Simulated assay, not measured.
Amino acid sequence: MTTHQIDELIARIKELEEEMEVEFQKKREDFLSVIDKKRLRLSEEVAAQQRRFKKGVVRYLIEARLLNILTAPLIYSGFPIFMLLDLFLFLYQGICFPVYGIPKARRSDYLVFDRGDLPYLNAIEKFNCFYCSYANGLAAYFREIAARTEQYWCPIKHARRILAAHDRYPKFFEYGDGESYRKGLERLRKEYEK
């Protein structure tokens, strides 16, 4: 398969992803109607309907599996580690990226905390959603910062197939293609738009 064919496949995949996002947006619009300070909110009618699915905290705890309750402290113990990683990423990107001319990844594009507005979640479920949003958003933010760093320092594909490569990876140079690497490295170091 040629590089041109691979580029065509990547373009088709992006088109399909955009098409899928349009369909997801249509589905969201069925439930959303009010935009308030950059936050989407459920319409009052839908919110009132959804409140009837809310399970109280006491009932939630009574019905929870004992092992879920016993393992929760271990899960939540990751929170300080995530906060330290968040601080590290802030410093790393703030100090290093300007030196290399790499545009910074916007944290707010990756960390989204909107599920706390859902009327059918109780306080524990809202905290769980906050925690998962933070952990997964931070992981995506970290991945983007690492991908931009890799694009600058070592934009070479691996010899073996890797699972779940980041979005920048397809632009990288083929393993063993030293000529393309030397000729195109400076150009690729400037191509950070997705």
Rank of each mutant, 00 (worst) to 15 (best):
T3Y: 11
R107S: 04
H158M: 09
G116A: 05
H166T: 00
L89N: 11
G94L: 01
P73F: 04
F24R: 14
F79L: 13
P98E: 04
L40R: 12
F127A: 06
R161D: 13
V112T: 07
E125G: 09
F24Y: 13
L84M: 12
H4I: 09
F31Y: 14
Y131F: 15
L42A: 01
D114N: 15
R12D: 14
E193V: 06
G101P: 05
I102V: 11
K104F: 01
L188K: 09
K104L: 12
F127M: 08
L40E: 15
R41M: 12
Y110R: 05
L84A: 12
A164Q: 09
K37N: 15
D86Y: 12
S180M: 00
D7L: 10
V57K: 03
N136P: 00
I145A: 02
V99C: 05
D86H: 15
E45C: 02
G56Y: 02
I13N: 10
S77D: 04
L74W: 08
A105I: 03
L9C: 11
E191P: 08
R107L: 08
A105Q: 07
M1T: 09
R115G: 09
S133C: 01
K37A: 14
C96V: 11
R51H: 06
F173Y: 02
G137R: 01
K183H: 08
R115N: 13
L118H: 13
K54M: 14
Q50C: 12
A72F: 08
F24V: 11
F88C: 10
P80I: 00
A147R: 01
L74K: 05
L40V: 04
R65G: 10
N136G: 12
Q93T: 04
E18D: 13
G176H: 01
Q151P: 05
F97V: 02
G56K: 07
R12K: 14
P119M: 01
V22S: 09
A139P: 00
L91E: 07
S133E: 13
A165G: 14
F172M: 03
Y60L: 04
D117R: 13
E29F: 02
T3G: 14
E19W: 05
Y175I: 00
D86P: 05
L9F: 12
Q93G: 06
R182P: 01
R161F: 11
S180A: 13
Y192I: 04
Y141K: 06
R107P: 06
R39P: 00
D86E: 13
V57A: 06
V57D: 08
L111Q: 08
E44H: 07
Y110P: 03
L188W: 02
V34S: 03
A146S: 12
E193G: 10
C132W: 10
L89T: 07
K190F: 05
K54F: 04
H4V: 09
P98A: 03
E144C: 05
